[in-house]
Design a protein around this nucleic acid. Sequence first.
DNA 1: GACATGAGAGCAATCGTTTGCATTAATTGC
DNA 2: GCAATTAATGCAAACGATTGCTCTCATGTC
Lengths: 375, 375
Amino acid sequence: MPATIRDVARASGVHISTVSRTFSAPHLVNPETRSRVLACAESLGYRPNRAARALITGRTHNIGLIVADIANPFFPPLIKAAESQARGRDYHIFVADTNEDPAVEEELVHALAKQVDGVLLCSPRMSNSLIEQLSREVPLVVINRQVAGLPSVVTDNGQGARLAVEHLLALGHRQLALLGGPRGSWTNREIRRAVGAVARSGGATLTVLGPNAPTETGGSALAEQVRRCGATAVLAYNDLMAIGLIEGLHAIGMEVPRDVSVVGIDDIALSRLTRPKLTTVATPAAAAGRTAVDMLLQHDAPAGTRGGARGTFGDDRRTTAQVTLQTELVIRESTGPGPAAEVDRAGTPEAEGPGPHPTADPGEVAVTPGEVVPS
Amino acid sequence: MPATIRDVARASGVHISTVSRTFSAPHLVNPETRSRVLACAESLGYRPNRAARALITGRTHNIGLIVADIANPFFPPLIKAAESQARGRDYHIFVADTNEDPAVEEELVHALAKQVDGVLLCSPRMSNSLIEQLSREVPLVVINRQVAGLPSVVTDNGQGARLAVEHLLALGHRQLALLGGPRGSWTNREIRRAVGAVARSGGATLTVLGPNAPTETGGSALAEQVRRCGATAVLAYNDLMAIGLIEGLHAIGMEVPRDVSVVGIDDIALSRLTRPKLTTVATPAAAAGRTAVDMLLQHDAPAGTRGGARGTFGDDRRTTAQVTLQTELVIRESTGPGPAAEVDRAGTPEAEGPGPHPTADPGEVAVTPGEVVPS
DNA sequence: GACATGAGAGCAATCGTTTGCATTAATTGC
DNA sequence: GCAATTAATGCAAACGATTGCTCTCATGTC
């Protein structure tokens, strides 16, 4: 029932190609004709069928964005940033959620493949080899994971975790626990590696609990285990787990930071609203979203393309840059001094570069900002 | 570069129509041929182009879902429920966020129109007339709003708000405040109307603050105003605002529920995790998402359609049912007794049907479940 | 042995656009 | 006054699929 280009052509007495040009190359059609066509189009409520157009131009002006769990507050800022960046380039973002399920992830890439010009794969849980394979079907930019040969943007959660543990060491904690994230998470491995190293060099014992669901529930379910392992300070895979853990600890009579210090990762909006306010590692999610869109669209002529491209754009010579975004530690209320003395001795080593070193500081303090773009 | 149906046809030595049938009507092709075709398709990595297919079948097997603000935790459960319901019917959901901006909303409907079989319009901020107009372009199901002539599913927030206020009255509160939501919100009007009526009949004074941004920030910014207006109990447009308000009040030295009782609406996951835990009106978001998908797809033959439909499906005689989902009050820790006596006198009136009546009850209590499907 | 039957496969039109090329008419240059 | 240019439009072939028809054979029936 909706009007097609043919209806408009008939109504305005011109050939469909003229109608087409009225929209996609206005300078090629007589101003008089153009306005007549526009009037007819308007009155018929005509809108070009983007799918049909995409079929021949090879460009949909859509971008797919696949996230592991839309309910995780980490993603919305990223999504919004991507959307606004895309909108500025005349693109639209379609978001889809995988429920942390690798199979759904794959299915979604296939479903999206031909309806978008590229897919932003956010915190994927599937294997690298599958990702590589899928990247032959549709241009991919991977977020929060590095895959050889594919453009990616990651936040340096390893570095962030290191900052967090150094902060805890400086506070005098020597019994540490790490709440692991979901199986298949690249970030999880990075964090674990970093934490392992810095804990060892700081002379602390580390208990790793996991893998776990990266949610409040996943966190609160671990309260008992945390108590049993005797840790006085905990780093969680993300803020949601940290918040859940605090609640879970509260439920079994342990208070944060009095009995245990807790640090999260992500700095979701929520972490400023809980009581106690959460000490956490801020990851630049919005910047990641923007950057990913830019990387996907980098071979796209910013404005009036002069058409002619066959197949999906940028087929050849896509830059496969891997961008790493730095994180920073935000000290709030969920961390406090460790059980015993020696608060001052620790935390000084490993050539720390410039910037203030985290000490037991009240209020909100940011450590180590910056951005790094290797490769 | 990706293989097309023609490549497969050439490779397996059959006509493209045979390849097509191999996928869409396997029983029409010789088993032998079929397996040969499948083998070729497999080895070429062929996947049917869904966009091209949609062009001729008129069915994309996609559903658009437009939400006002993806960062609002109210939406994820709805989105996930819709996704899973859709997946069961072999449909995919594309989510897009409008940033509470009516203009973006309209643009997104247009962008999605030809790439989906229908759009779920969630908490729209645009005008009814615009919605009606857009519904001529693509089948629409409206969520959290009633629009004449269009299928819709709403949660009965008016009823929920009434329960909340009755609860507050029963606790002895007589100075009430309502934190209004965003301009253009249908739900907001429903809540306001209901609260106005029940407050009046309960002999309480009501201060309405708003409109406001329906976020934590929007809530915390109102703390000072709440104090000034002298209210001892507050109902917020949603949980996010309620949580923000609690935090804002805390910052100016007022404690909840000691000094002020606060009730939210939505029962987002978070409201169980804040301190104090939030008393709130639970709205069945997931059910809303599922129902909306069902309503959109109701004229869709569940399984093997025997094709032939021209244009978008269900053109005629779409049922325009308006489903209303009941809400329930969940009493947690953010509400407490009012300033003075007479706790027992209030809250008894208006023929309350069956079910326990909310009294100052510790723990978690649910009131008035159920589902109603008029028209 | 003639004929209806039906299975399997090919043909070609179609969906709604875009775009290279051909056509026409009007303008310009000399 | 005529060729050469330019501006505006039409023509038709794509894009990648689906699907109603037609065509060709076996097969089964009487």
